[in-house]
Design a protein around this nucleic acid. Sequence first.
DNA 1: AGCTGATCATAT
DNA 2: ATATGATCAGCT
Length: 220
Amino acid sequence: MITPPSSEQELLCRAERIAGKTLGELANTYASQIPSNLLFEKGWVGQFCEKLLGASAGSLPEPDFPQLGIELKTIPIDSSGRPLESTYVSVVPMSATGETWETSVVFHKLSKVLWLPIMSEKPLSIEQRVVGMPIMWQPNPEQLELIRMDWEEALEKIMLGDHGALNAKFGEVLQVRPKAAHSRVLTEAVGPEGHTVKTLPRGFYLRPSFTQNILRQLTY
DNA sequence: AGCTGATCATAT
DNA sequence: ATATGATCAGCT
């Protein structure tokens, strides 16, 4: 059990200390069992890194380091530093809770993010994957505005019950995609006439084109 | 090769 | 069921 970092600086130092190491080395050091593939433990890398850096466990809709207001995101990259996947941010509130942008989970989680790139090209086994240099990121005004506009538009679709629009084509930078155990899962949502209906749960994801820019801006 | 919809583990 | 952590895998 690793204690939570007491400051942003300490968190960053911890992350820098594991940069350059393979997941195999780190798992050895911390006596963790490493899965041979991620098919049945898709979140393993993220959860392992949370543990390494002292994030408070739990699945609360708030940043991983609540006291610091910092969210940790591991992001798989190829040898050119390009993201291999989109980045999950949070659940889409399909039953519109009267949330505003400033009170939204998306806003709070993305206010400050510690990105931890993991070189994860397919031929590499999990233990061979390498932790890259961490990036402490706060969205600049333009980035924040792009995210906000997608978020606002998504909330409009929710209020209208226009679930057909809430698919993976939605959002310039903040995408909407299914987020569920399987495709038969249903959650409560606002229907077209304002009544409660059931629909597939969805999540907000950052598109790779957006996260690539985040990784680039500190790489150069 | 990138995108989109589907899916898996765990905790509460 | 819903939240966290995400990646998988078929299709274009």
